[in-house]
Computed example of a mutant assay.
Amino acid sequence: MSDFYFGGDLFQELDRMQRQMSTLFGNLPSSIRSSRTDVFPQLNIGSTDDAVEIVAFAPGVDPASLEVTVDKGTLTISGERNGETLPEGARTYAKERFTGSFRRVIELPQNADVDKVQARYENGTLSITVGKREASKPRAITIQ
């Protein structure tokens, strides 16, 4: 006979334990593909039939300091974000905004065409479009 007795709904209890663990450890990534909240710049990556779309949220970054490169199936976004200057004689009490150099590396899908990359920076957002190879695009087949 087991010393363990469970008198309630097992799934309800597991859900309660998961909520307690989330509270205890904070908002950790929910999967291996989730990103930490302190990574800069944060990215959204999506795909259409024609291209891979990457959006990097980089407010306060001088567009001249940004560099986008593609090499061996990876796209790299690098740059520098300068800090705000405090008045003379002031000491930093708290600092929550990231400043300094950054670099993000994104593995592109195999059907990405690295010869078709476009990037634009507007209102603190870097948008990158990587075209897909023609052979990988879906096409309709006519039935005879």
Rank of each mutant, 00 (worst) to 15 (best):
R91H: 10
I106G: 04
A58T: 11
K116G: 00
E53K: 10
I54F: 00
S65P: 06
L108D: 04
E107V: 10
Q12C: 01
Q118P: 01
G131R: 00
I45Q: 07
T74A: 06
R103T: 14
T69D: 10
R19L: 03
E122G: 02
R139K: 13
V70T: 14
G46H: 13
V117F: 04
L14I: 14
V55Y: 01
R91I: 08
L43Q: 08
I54C: 10
P87K: 12
S31A: 13
D113N: 15
S30V: 09
L28P: 06
S31R: 07
P138Q: 03
T125F: 05
D9Q: 06
P41K: 00
N82K: 11
Y5D: 09
G89D: 14
R91G: 12
L108H: 04
Q20C: 03
F40L: 12
V70G: 04
K72P: 03
E134T: 13
G131L: 00
R104L: 09
D9H: 07
T76E: 10
P87I: 03
A140Q: 05
L66M: 11
V61W: 02
Q144D: 08
E134V: 13
N44H: 04
S47E: 14
V114P: 12
M1W: 02
G124W: 04
V70M: 01
A135F: 09
D38N: 15
F25N: 14
F57R: 14
I143H: 03
